[in-house]
Amino acid sequence: MQRISVVDFIKINSLSFSGILEVGDSKKITPVSQALAVQREVPVFFTNEGDFSKYPIFSRELPKVKVTETVNMNVFNQNPIIKVDSIRVNGVSSSAVVQIGSTETIHAESKVKHIRKLLDEKSKHNK
């Protein structure tokens, strides 16, 4: 049976960094986001920054959850319409998914490397 997703009103303030809004059914959703966050006391930026290959976290495979339980399920969709009156979302970011409908598989991945470059006490006193 084919289903129809109906949404009267949806407001999302921010949708970014591989965030997904899906109205309707889908087979597979695979949002991926990678980010380098560099924080410095002195705002200096270099053009050679941002090479993900320099940081092992970005090439490392994330561990997969192994489902060992057997799930028996019977589904009966009496009404072929998914009806939503109103949705308000502040933000969807970094491989998150908002969906009205169904998906067989969602594989979401987000990797963030935070780097802090702080001045040592000696440098602070010489400013």
Rank of each mutant, 00 (worst) to 15 (best):
F46T: 11
V38S: 06
I4Q: 15
S59Y: 11
I29A: 04
V65T: 10
I82F: 09
S86M: 07
K113W: 00
F76L: 01
I57G: 01
T47W: 06
P43N: 14
S18K: 01
L118A: 10
V7W: 05
I4G: 00
H125Y: 04
S123L: 04
N126E: 10
K83S: 13
H114T: 09
D85I: 14
L62T: 14
N72M: 05
R60L: 09
P56F: 01
I57D: 08
L62R: 11
F76Y: 07
G19S: 02
G101I: 07
E109W: 00
P63Y: 06
P56T: 11
K66M: 01
D120I: 04
D120M: 00
V71A: 01
K11N: 09
F52W: 12
E121V: 04
T105Y: 15
V67H: 03
I57H: 03
A35K: 13
V7Q: 08
T103N: 09
S93C: 13
E109D: 13
N77I: 04
R3K: 11
G50W: 13
K11P: 00
V44P: 03
S95K: 08
N79K: 08
L15D: 01
S86C: 09
M73L: 05
V32W: 00
R40P: 11
P43Q: 13
K27I: 01
F52V: 08
V7E: 06
K28T: 09
